[in-house]
Design a protein around this nucleic acid. Sequence first.
DNA 1: AGGTATTGTGTGGTCCAACCACAGCCTAGT
DNA 2: ACTAGGCTGTGGTTGGACCACACAATACCT
Lengths: 233, 233
Amino acid sequence: MTAQAYETVIEEIESMIRSKRLKLGDRLEGERVLADRLGVSRTSVREAIRVLSTLGIIRSAPGSGPSAGAQVIADPEIALSASLRLHVAVDSLSVGDVIDARVMLESWAYRQLEQLPDDVLAPARELLDAMDATDDPVEFHHIDTQFHLELVRLAGNPLVNAIMSSLRASIESYVLDAAPHLEDWQAIAARLRAEHRAIVAAIGEGDGDRTASLAEGHILAFARDAGLIAQPG
Amino acid sequence: MTAQAYETVIEEIESMIRSKRLKLGDRLEGERVLADRLGVSRTSVREAIRVLSTLGIIRSAPGSGPSAGAQVIADPEIALSASLRLHVAVDSLSVGDVIDARVMLESWAYRQLEQLPDDVLAPARELLDAMDATDDPVEFHHIDTQFHLELVRLAGNPLVNAIMSSLRASIESYVLDAAPHLEDWQAIAARLRAEHRAIVAAIGEGDGDRTASLAEGHILAFARDAGLIAQPG
DNA sequence: AGGTATTGTGTGGTCCAACCACAGCCTAGT
DNA sequence: ACTAGGCTGTGGTTGGACCACACAATACCT
């Protein structure tokens, strides 16, 4: 079984990255040059670049000048989001699995926190105020997402951030579909706002365990309200 | 900004999946037919299929008969593994980040376990015996990987399984590179074997917290020995 | 009639040669 | 000195050709 042509191109590029001949921000050779050098067609080179592009490793743009060409980037979320979204769509992963994983990530993140400088919570508090200021469920949800991402970011693990972001993105459409069917949005929004403030307060007190516990209840309760997971019992 | 041709193909296929016109195991139309139907070139269709293939959604094979053609599959690991591996290579993610995430996953998985039927630990115990039977660090590591995956699998969350598997795969080359440089492999292997058995025993007792704690120490200690993360203090 | 080569057919895999759209650069003309 | 136009090289797209493959149907020989 000979490797497929586009695979040899990927291997070459990956090899250049591992050996540091290619670093973040560098530009690749042109597609035609690379094809010629590796003895494959431009089509195969393009397939390889397309793959690396969906993996968040390369970004390519037409035109000329500094912004053009294929460039090495580093966006781990691209592949994670796309993959999770599609696998939820084919029912290979369930929304419940994703929510459980999200609870795991957030609980972990909050337990990592300790003695933070006070001002690091300022962005989160601004998002709290923004959530107070809106009555639109969709806008509320978007700010809610930013809020949770902001808190997880405090743990400082970029991989966890990327996974967290991808998890939310993969089930966003399900959450938004469920929103209009909620019984009493005003009441639910009020509860979510209160829970958010309690979580921020717990972080401010440096109580990681309590924060994690609050977050778990907060996430699971809304998921039940939205019909995304079964009622307990 | 019009969507690129291959993106419209992906959207069409994703739409077919969401509307259940395409389910797991189904075969796609031929590339030529799909290209004609969507009014794009076969090249663009192929790029789309290649992307979905790296996302673990589609598998395609040449030839004829039941095994040929493009088929909807569900392998979440493909994209996760490839993406993580490359992002570690470009230093957009560090080995330490990956190890921390792995500790998070395993700790969570073990805390989920409760009152298991006794025989579910049989496969894990067999892997323990297999690890006893080898002196080769590389083979040991492979069985070690299977062992940890087997334990995490008991938690029953396929998404967590996929992430766990991908995390290990993404740093495997670093672990294997470090193996020959270990001071005293025999002593380390003996300690790993003992720790493994302690973990299995703790699971058998239904003590999730203790299992998680043992696993965390086990993982971090070896990572330090292998020079993958800094010494404490 | 049974088994065995052979051909046929449709699949994905690869390649080529052209052309398009784009964006910066450079030059000619004012 | 400035502006408008063309130049050049980038990725994006297309059509058509051919290959390797794997199965299915057929023809063939025994």
